[in-house]
Design a protein around this nucleic acid. Structure first.
Lengths: 409, 409
DNA sequence: TTGAAAGCGCTAACAC
DNA sequence: GTGTTAGCGCTTTCAA
């Protein structure tokens, strides 16, 4: 006997109305109501269908999702695991995933991993427990071994980089920009300006994408005939316990290190824009100006922030809207059983957005041209136009001048 | 007959094990297993309890949350509605809520409202449908009327400002800083520096907190004997369809407007740090330097970003960790039936963090001292210490010099 | 101190 | 075309 029954369905003035009530009122059976509700109208008499719909309206019936979920074992929810919600880039990603998911009637559970495999596994566990079967990984660890056991429990993962490897991994799809190419694009721009000593500034290189960017950096240097100096690669160790000291802090610290070298780099390529902004500050701490004394090149093109930075940041843009639309539809397609077979992958095209944080290296001596910093000054800039990158990316990387895409919806 | 049964419970090699299996193995009834699992060990023989626990282990049993949720109508999930996930501040808030919730075994569903009541209502609807009964509102609209009908369906809301009003509103608790005081703190700092014309730069003033900040601004001006000039209040209209043009963009536009006035303000108080960063750019566009030509004072103290900005941003800090801990425990307390009665409210204490974006107004003429902008320059700063604001806030507002709290966990 | 039994609201196989 | 029926896995009375 139930004194405290589940009551999640439609409620009118406190009285719960179930599918049975609708059936009774429409003079049909529960299964018929169920069929109407789920669009199984194959050989149903239109009059029956209409009677049911009328009854639903009359009673203000709302299906009990919990019952449905329980019965079908299906939850219309996917998880999105991001490495750091302190970086607005992941907010952007989350919005796009949420948008694509909601078009399919799905919800998104946002999970902040802080790049911690333990947290990732715990999230997977919890989500699995509550019926979630699909996960998007915003930034994938080098291995999915810690998630392999979840495969047998039906977990499916779409990754935001080329994480197809790993035999046991439940990865069913992926989307990325060509990170190697992106880094080469960035470095070529710098070498094109005449830079020979270019620092690589990153946090822990424990993700597929970071590793690829480092590879691209090395390749581009080699292509330009510049010998690789390992001392110019700074890989910060994250000490943040809860993410407050994300990229920007590390970027600053890293800039301190690299720019204090006897033969300091004339340009810094940072793993993302937050690091770049931190590098601005780090350079400033040492009395160095951007881009006069040191060029800084970021990654992500954080909406508005990169434009608004001082000086406006040269950076690599990823077409987030289309990428996340692909990722989400892949995942939901799998969950709905529309897609099977081999994992599918999309490689999108990065763009270099040239603004004012990069310039030719200063002709003056390296270490000598420091000066006492003074009050901040600014760049005049009016380089904004509307453009929409939500459509398909072109097949070759583009280099654009400081524009920003329109707001696709 | 079920060919495709729900299978969410514990799975060992593909075989689902239910509570009945555990009961069978332990030689007890399902209800006994249920009692063990739910800690109802009142008058249970320890040996029975242990046998059940052993059976659980042996079989690798994991309770089917979906079944439990369905049966009880209770979901261990709360929703968090934030106005803009493009603003890292809300990322910070989300992390803290998630942290506090997970300590209680709750999950957080992050919802991005873009300040759209329609989206808010739709989220409430969806969440309610899927069994969620608790919601935290990151930024509350002036009225909760559009949510009043959800009250009868059991929805409970904790708001991030003093939204107790509204008879029908399902608000059961709230937490805020004293926004009036915070704004007065900010404005007093500016008037103390000698500013008389101070702009107020905001997006749509349709939230409780923004309205309060405007009130504080006006009060502080009055207290300083400065007559209020409505032309100095700029209330931007958001045109962003999907948030990309959040604060920073509006801040820039607003700065253009205010700083192009014939008798332009010598200082700008912005509704949040993103606006402040945008205002930096807007000032720069006009060839004005911060703080030499115009002071800028923000709100939120975005971790790292505010410090790293150029010049480092003077801003008002809210003690997010303690605030969100209160909000979350209030909400979960209600959901668990531990708390009843009147809504409870916490008012936390804001702090003014003085950095380098504010300075006395320039003695030179107002509109005349523009100049052509040049390459960015920087501030030297090393004003960082560790401090923990996760403990109780003091009862009087503090003014600190550019420090940043330690990372509470 | 434990067990039996009923049923939450829905779906789907199968009968008619 | 539509109805009958048998549960999904769990919780909770109430009886023993």
């Amino acid at each position: 006997m139930n004194r405290e029954p589940a009551r999640t369905g439609g409620v009118v003035d406190g009285a719960k109305v179930s599918l049975h009530d609708v059936a009774a009122r429409a003079g049909v059976s529960p299964s018929t109501v169920s069929n109407v509700l789920n669009g199984r109208l194959g050989r149903m008499r239109p009059s029956t269908r209409d009677r049911v719909r009328q009854a639903v309206r009359d009673l203000g019936y709302v299906p009990n999702q919990l019952a449905r979920q329980f019965r079908t074992g299906q939850v219309r929810t996917i998880g999105l695991i991001v490495p750091s919600v302190a970086n607005p880039f992941w907010g952007l990603v989350a919005r796009r995933v949420e948008q694509a998911a909601s078009e399919r009637g799905y919800q998104v559970l946002l999970c902040n991993s802080e790049r911690d495999p333990g947290r990732e596994a715990r999230y997977a566990e919890t989500l699995l427990d509550s019926g979630v079967r699909g996960l998007i990984f915003g930034s994938s660890p080098l291995s999915f071994d810690h998630l392999a056991t979840f495969r047998s429990r039906g977990l499916q993962i779409v990754a935001f980089d080329r994480s197809l490897a790993g035999a046991g991994a439940p990865v069913v799809g992926s989307v990325e920009i060509d990170n190697v190419l992106a880094a080469r694009l960035a470095i070529s721009h710098l070498t094109g300006l005449g830079h020979r000593r270019i620092g690589f500034l990153s946090g822990p290189i424990r993700t597929v994408s970071r590793r690829a960017r480092l590879a691209g950096y090395q390749e581009a240097l080699a292509a330009a005939g510049i010998e690789h100096d390992p001392a110019l690669v700074w890989e910060g160790t994250s000490v943040a316990t809860f993410g407050d000291a994300d990229g920007a802090e590390l970027g600053r610290t890293g800039a301190h290190h690299l720019l204090s070298m006897p033969d300091r780099p004339s340009a810094l390529f940072t793993i993302n824009d937050m690091y770049a902004l931190g590098a601005y500050a780090g350079a400033g701490d040492l009395g160095l100006r951007v881009p006069d004394d040191v060029s800084v090149l970021g990654f992500d093109d954080l909406p508005v922030l990169a434009e608004v930075a001082m000086p406006p940041l040269t950076t690599v843009r990823q077409p987030v809207p289309s990428m996340m639309r692909f990722a989400t539809s892949q995942l939901i397609g799998r969950l709905e059983g529309e897609m099977t077979g081999e994992p599918r992958h999309l490689t999108a095209t990065p763009e270099l957005v040239v603004r004012q944080s990069t310039a030719p290296p200063s002709p003056a001596g390296r270490t000598e041209n420091r000066r006492e910093p003074s009050r901040g000054e600014r760049q005049n800039r009016a380089d904004r136009t509307g453009r929409d990158d939500t459509t398909r990316a072109p097949s070759i990387p583009r280099v654009v001048r400081g524009r920003r895409p329109g707001r696709g919806v």
